[in-house]
């Protein structure tokens, strides 16, 4: 009988994909409600600046960025695993995705963290 390549599972990433999806939905809801539906008066740069200067909102958006990137990149990785069988290609794709995720996370961080009025 053939060996079907048992060894590396996917339980952890499957579980985290669902958890991150639920949390992202809540974060997105909060983001939309505060930014687009219930702003006091018109949205202005000054108001956004005031909100993003608060540590709590910084933390909110850093979590948002981290989970959004994890969810998106993990999704692409799951699709890649369906179609790419060779372990060398899998290694390259996973590496590229992780590097892309890291760069995007850094870009997000240098935008959100130093933001102040």
């Amino acid at each position: 009988m053939r060996d079907y390549g048992f060894g590396s599972g996917g339980a952890f990433h499957w579980f985290l994909q669902r958890v991150s999806g639920v949390v992202l939905f809540i974060l997105l809801l909060v983001h939309f409600l505060t930014t687009h539906y219930f702003p006091v008066g018109d949205i202005t740069y000054q108001k956004v600046l005031a909100r993003l200067s608060q540590p709590g909102w910084k933390l909110f958006y850093m979590v948002f960025i981290a989970l959004g990137l994890y969810h998106g990149i993990n999704g692409i990785w799951i699709i890649a695993q369906d179609y790419v069988a060779r372990s060398s290609w899998r290694f390259i794709i996973l590496g590229l995705l992780m590097v892309a995720g890291l760069i995007l996370f850094m870009l997000g961080s240098i935008t959100v963290i130093p933001f102040k009025a």
Binding site: Y4, G5, F6, G7, S8, G9, G10, A11, H13, W14, I78, Q81, D82
Partner: peptide
């Protein structure tokens, strides 16, 4: 479960 939890097992079902 050890057989199912692998890269060609459960997690390939979308």
């Amino acid at each position: 479960l050890d057989v199912l939890d692998n890269k060609h097992g459960l997690w390939r079902c979308h």
